[in-house]
């Protein structure tokens, strides 16, 4: 009888740690979704071309043609980008999904109402592809690409460019109030969580193009217009230095 409290205590301790361990397990990969995603990504469907023709057979991107890598990106980021590519803000007669108002966005003024959209991303290639995808397709593709392993090949960059790029990536331009790239895009531009995509391992010209798109208003899908404010303060030299610096970073991504 005297032992009972002790046994109870031990059982609760073990049970508690078991529950803690189970809750802290990374969620298992949805294998069915991954396979469906792989099928669509490598083979394509009716009017959807195979993603791998442009984004590389392992999702590693294409440095020569500036196709971004998709391997190892956060699944929610991929889904969000595909949604943003598919959204056409000026199309009439569409039923808008209920979206949280984001007042930091450029207001789009219709005759009778002002809509603060979550932003769009214009690209002649990806717009059409993304519009043909169903929500399930997006989820499947995101699961497939996010679980692919990826290893970056650091590009050679001359010393001065690297030094200037590092200055921007690690310190930003404090005299203009511009924070460092790494304070949002993660240490070494590895990316952080669903909102902040990696910059390392992306083709440098692709990065420059994206910043240009923000500056010209072709892309404004970033949360809270965070990146828009950064992009508007970057000079052409800054873009090149930063892109070269990030293409010089080494990076290994493995799905845990």
């Amino acid at each position: 009888m005297k032992k009972l409290p002790k046994i109870l205590l031990i059982i609760t301790l073990i049970g508690g740690s078991l529950v803690y361990w189970i809750q802290n397990q990374p969620p298992p990969i949805d294998e069915a979704a991954r396979q469906a995603g792989e099928q669509l990504a490598t083979k394509g469907r009716d009017n959807i071309p195979a993603c791998t023709t442009c984004h590389g057979s392992k999702g590693e991107g294409n440095f020569a043609a500036n196709f971004p890598r998709l391997a190892g990106l956060h699944p929610d980021y991929i889904i969000k980008q595909l949604q943003d590519y598919a959204r056409d803000p000026l199309q009439t007669g569409v039923k808008l999904e209920p979206i949280a108002r984001d007042y930091s966005k450029t207001p789009r003024i219709y005759s009778d109402l002002t809509v603060y959209t979550p932003g769009t991303r214009k690209d002649p290639i990806m717009n059409n592809i993304a519009k043909a995808l169903t929500p399930t397709d997006r989820k499947n593709l995101a699961t497939y690409f996010s679980t692919l392993p990826f290893q970056a090949t650091p590009q050679p960059v001359d010393f001065q460019t690297l030094e200037r790029g590092a200055d921007l990536a690690l310190r930003g331009k404090p005299e203009y109030g511009l924070p460092s790239c790494d304070s949002c895009h993660g240490p070494d531009g590895k990316g952080f969580g669903p909102y902040f995509p990696p910059l390392a391992g992306q083709p440098p010209q692709y990065l420059i193009d994206q910043i240009n798109k923000w500056q010209t208003g072709k892309r404004d899908n970033d949360s809270l217009a965070l990146m828009q404010n950064i992009a508007n303060q970057l000079t052409d030299g800054d873009k090149m230095n930063a892109a070269a610096y990030f293409s010089n970073r080494s990076l290994i991504v493995n799905w845990k």
């Binding site: 109030g177 923000w214 208003g217 404010n229 508007n232 303060q233």
Partner: peptide
């Protein structure tokens, strides 16, 4: 709403050199 200029110009006051 925090209006930004529709031409996508910066909405943050820019510091003078």
């Amino acid at each position: 709403p925090r209006l930004s200029i529709p031409t996508n110009l910066t909405t943050v006051p820019v510091v003078n050199p």
